[in-house]
């Protein structure tokens, strides 16, 4: 039930290698430490949001409002900085705001029993209006550098952001595979009614998954402020669909019950490598969405075929001589 689809991760890993090789041959500027750092930095928000979405999807939910949650959390952090709060507090504020909004989403879904896709489409509109109203037409730009110093620096010679992402994924792995919550979440995603019969608190488990997703989106909001020192009205408008595409690409089932954290990570890295590499070899940025779509459709339909082929081969060998 909770086995990870190792095949997908292998496919993604190979795809990343192949893409890197191709770009390295095509552009002398691709395979440099500086560019690797740039790709990593551009992936941070999506890595955190994708991680949260992996939990939400594992429990059989979906969240198309997650980009707006990141936006609201970023505004909270930005206002914190402008009021002169220390960076640590601004960071806490962002995570707290994200968690609260995630709870709200979770309540509509888990308690109100509105299907997640419907509830989050509705909340997308509501949160978006909240962003408009809160910003009131003024961009927050050239923000104080407190969060930048905290999150864009290095610790023990390693980028803080890298440490945060690795730590978050490690904790998430423990949470998903080694705790009752993780087992319950996958059970709820797999079959809600059976899980309930087994005594799982379905409502609570769902709620926590959405809260977790919100909290990680909040953390992503803090990183957004740290990296760009700027919050504008359109913040997060494309984030949710990109993240959902990457998580699905990574092998997490959209029906719930199956999750791959490593897959999510690799899916997002592949997306960012392609986006970066295409600009470096001179492809107009307008083609990037086309590539994302082809990648998503290609990997998922190819996999279906390969798996089918594998089954057929296996059956062939199993046939008695």
């Amino acid at each position: 039930m909770s086995t990870e689809p190792i095949g997908r991760e292998l496919v993604l890993g190979l795809a990343i290698l192949a893409a890197c090789l191709a770009f390295a041959l095509a552009s002398p500027f691709f395979a440099t430490p500086a560019n690797a750092l740039i790709i990593g930095r551009n992936a941070i928000e999506l890595l955190l949001i994708g991680l949260g979405l992996t939990f939400v999807l594992a429990g059989g939910g979906i969240d198309v409002a997650v980009g707006m949650v990141m936006g609201l959390a970023a505004i909270a952090a930005a206002h914190g900085l402008l009021m002169g709060l220390p960076a640590g507090l601004a960071l806490t504020l962002a995570v707290l705001a994200g968690t609260l909004l995630g709870c709200l989403t979770g309540m509509v879904v888990a308690i109100g029993r509105v299907p997640a896709i419907v509830a989050t489409i509705g909340l997308y509109g509501v949160y978006r209006t909240a962003i408009f109203v809160w910003l009131g037409g003024q961009w927050l730009s050239g923000l104080p550098s407190g969060l930048t110093d905290l999150l864009s620096g290095t610790l023990l010679g390693l980028p803080v952001a890298l440490l945060v992402v690795v730590l978050a994924y490690a904790l998430a792995h423990v949470l998903l595979r080694r705790t009752p919550f993780g087992i319950h979440l996958l059970a709820v995603g797999h079959d809600e009614d059976k899980a309930r019969l087994m005594g799982v608190n379905v409502v609570g488990t769902r709620l926590v998954a959405f809260a977790l997703g919100g909290g990680l989106a909040g953390l992503a909001g803090a990183f957004h402020v740290a990296t760009y020192r700027n919050v504008e009205m359109t913040i997060g408008s494309n984030t949710a669909l990109d993240a959902i595409a990457a998580v699905i690409l990574g092998g997490t089932s959209i029906l719930g019950g199956r999750a791959s954290l490593l897959g999510t990570m690799l899916g997002i890295i592949l997306l960012r490598v392609l986006q970066n590499g295409l600009v470096l070899v001179g492809v107009p940025s307008l083609w990037q969405t086309v590539v994302t779509g082809l990648l998503l459709l290609g990997v998922l339909s190819l996999e279906g075929h390969l798996l089918g082929l594998g089954d057929r081969l296996r059956n062939f060998w199993r046939q008695p001589a």
Binding site: I62, V291, G293
Partner: peptide, 17 residues
Amino acid sequence: LIATLGTLFLYGGLALA
């Protein structure tokens, strides 16, 4: 959801590109 998310990117992207 996956198929049409893919074609949302693909068709929409093609129209722009």
